[in-house]
């Protein structure tokens, strides 16, 4: 039996003077105990809304959600005693110190003054915040802020953790450090549902990935399964001059087995092919014959980017840009 189970969640909003937005459009999800599931999708896809339903912050219009046998909609108080939430929306108090924030959360879980202090001290040490513990959070760096935020979610050492875009906006070093923490939690048996826009993050952390677009799960499986589902090899070309895009696209389409699509990197185009080496040499031959210069040409295995692209028809990060604020 799944530890977290959401079925047919629907949530609509009606912004003033605009058509109804279906933030969740029949979303279903299962997370087995002790595993990490990543919700992957662009901003506005419904990731945060899903997490907000599961953390009791919003009620869906219809559908059901159960965590460890407890009905989230009928018994939110019991759910709150077994979850930890961290992320964009569940903020910490900027005017309190790191220690005070954790102590406050402990008190609000009703651990009592003494245990709340002990636990705050423990978490401060675990998250390497000893030196900063008596400074107000307002002065924290982005990485420290995320750590104190995550620590806040761990105060009762909950069996279930919800992490909403835990590393968005972090520098690579802080991101790696946070990934280590999350992996260590999972190794101790915590069940984690996290949302991310970063394919790399889902690839690294998640046992299972649910790709979300327009309020629905459009694909799920392990990273490898998802990559295998889009199949085959790819040829990627990086142009020197963007003006030559059309010509190159034509050449790629002729030799590929599918649509040539732009990658996230600028001026890079990717096409699925049947026989990698042969296709690559033919494509490079033709491009060279056409007098077009390349920065880079090569074969690559499908990435989660390709998965996303193939499933949704648009790139993850492009969509994120377009829909900023729509979430």
């Amino acid at each position: 039996m799944p530890f977290i189970e959401a079925s047919d969640l629907v949530k609509t909003y009606t912004p003033k003077g605009a058509p109804v937005v279906r933030a969740l459009d029949g979303l279903s999800l299962q997370v087995p105990q002790g595993t990490v599931t990543a919700l992957l999708g662009p901003n506005g896809a419904g990731k945060t809304t899903t997490v907000k339903v599961l953390t009791t912050l919003i009620s869906p219009d219809s559908g059901s959600a159960v965590i460890d046998g407890v009905d989230v909609l009928a018994d939110p108080d019991r759910v709150r005693r077994m979850i930890g939430a961290s992320g964009q929306y569940a903020a910490v108090d900027e005017n309190l110190t790191g220690f005070e924030n954790l102590e406050m959360v402990g008190r609000l879980y009703h651990l009592g003054a003494k245990r709340a202090k002990e636990r705050a001290r423990e978490l401060i040490e675990l998250f390497d915040l000893v030196e900063a513990q008596n400074r107000v959070v307002k002065g924290f760096s982005g990485g420290m802020r995320r750590r104190i935020d995550l620590a806040g979610a761990l105060v009762i050492n909950p069996p279930v953790l919800f992490l909403d875009e835990p590393t968005t906006g972090l520098d690579p070093r802080s991101r790696l450090a946070l990934w280590d923490v999350i992996e260590s939690l999972v190794s101790e048996g915590t069940t984690v549902l996290l949302t991310t826009q970063y394919l790399e993050e889902a690839d690294r952390l998640a046992d299972s990935i649910s790709v979300i677009d327009e309020g629905r799960v459009i694909a799920e499986g392990t990273a490898d399964e998802l990559k295998a589902s889009v199949g085959g090899q790819r040829v990627a070309l990086t142009l020197v001059d963007a003006d030559e895009t059309e010509t190159v696209r034509g050449i790629l389409q002729r030799h590929g087995t599918g649509e040539a699509v732009p990658s996230n990197e600028s001026k890079t185009w990717v096409v699925p092919v049947d026989d990698g080496p042969t296709a690559l040499s033919r494509i490079v031959g033709e491009v060279t014959a056409a007098g077009i210069s390349l920065h880079d040409a090569g074969m690559r295995r499908p990435t989660l980017d390709d998965v996303f692209l193939q499933l949704t028809g648009h790139a993850a990060e492009d969509a994120a840009e377009n829909e900023k604020g729509a979430a």
Partner: peptide, 29 residues
């Protein structure tokens, strides 16, 4: 940042899956 479990069981290594390395903290009565 080695172990993140609750007090009482520092460093207890984890049973992945059904059992957890350390217990959830319960509220005071």
């Amino acid at each position: 940042m080695s172990t993140v479990g609750a007090s009482g069981m520092p460093g207890a290594s984890g049973g992945v899956g059904a059992s957890r390395a350390s217990a959830t903290l319960q509220p005071e009565p």
